[in-house]
């Protein structure tokens, strides 16, 4: 079957094998996107707290200050401990901040996270992001799937909710198919095919630069190398017809 090279990966795609026996690839969100979402959520919480304070302040004169104070206490409790939990266990699996940035919380196998998991990951938010924000930050950066401690304990990851389809234009084919000099790894084949699939939007210089990485494979320089690579891509895909 397929041989896999040991090269370090250059993207944040995470392969997850499902019980159906197939692998899916999740796009894990990094520290920057998540921090941004968190800051947006903080802003939202502050706004919500002020609005609640105002409403309760108005109610004060109708129901009496003790009830109003009690109600405010309960609402603030729900807001501080429940906002993230309630939003993330909803259908979108995301708080307002995460929705704006385009993220959602899923379990490590890509399925919808259970309520318990969402609850756990958000309890630890208190220590990781409120008392000692550095812990959350460092833990997120140090783990392979960008998980903070709460994510590790709950078994969740934060992923991009939708794969954004990158516009890509294939390099114009019609070049002579040519076989590569020797048998390539599947991943190498895929890279060459992807080069043709996506090359159409790159400048000539960029095409040449990327083609130069395949120096062991192609003989020519710059634009010739590009032509050769596209030819190989032709050969690799044509072969399967």
């Amino acid at each position: 079957m397929a041989r896999v090279s040991n090269q370090p990966k250059i993207d944040t795609l995470q392969s997850v094998e499902l019980s159906e026996g197939v692998e899916i690839q999740l796009r894990i969100a990094g520290v920057f996107a998540r921090s941004l979402a968190y800051l947006l959520d903080l802003v939202f919480i502050i706004i919500a707290a002020s609005v609640l304070g105002f409403i309760v302040g108005v109610m004060d004169s109708f129901v009496g200050s003790n009830y109003a104070m009690g109600l405010y206490g309960l609402l603030m409790f729900i807001l501080t401990w429940g906002y993230f939990f309630l939003m993330e266990s909803g259908k979108k699996g995301a708080t307002f901040g995460k929705r704006i940035v385009g993220l959602r919380v899923v379990n490590t196998s890509g399925g919808i996270a259970q309520r318990g998991q969402v609850f756990t990951r958000n309890l630890f938010r208190f220590v990781e992001l409120v008392i000692m924000p550095l812990i959350g930050l460092c833990c997120t950066m140090m783990t392979k799937r960008f998980q903070r401690a709460g994510d590790l304990v709950a078994g969740t990851v934060v992923v991009y909710a939708e794969t954004d389809v990158q516009p890509s234009v294939a390099l114009n084919s019609g070049r002579e198919p040519r076989p590569p000099g020797w048998k390539l790894l599947r991943e190498e084949q895929a890279a060459i095919v992807a080069f043709r699939e996506r090359g159409g939007l790159w400048s000539g210089a960029r095409q040449a630069e990327l083609a130069s990485h395949a120096q062991v494979l192609v003989k020519g320089e710059s634009s010739e190398a590009v032509t050769e690579l596209v030819g190989m891509a032709e050969w690799l895909t044509a072969k399967k017809d």
């Binding site: 129901v63 003790n66 009690g70 603030m76 501080t80 220590v127 000692m132």
Partner: peptide, 30 residues
């Protein structure tokens, strides 16, 4: 005996005591 004082204290105990439970648990990560 004040109107609504019981409710206010109830709300206070909820947010304070359950909050403390959560804090005790979460700080276990350290």
């Amino acid at each position: 005996a004040e109107q609504g004082a019981d409710f206010q204290m109830f709300a206070h105990y909820i947010s304070n005591n359950i909050g403390i439970d959560f804090q005790i648990f979460a700080s276990g990560i350290l």
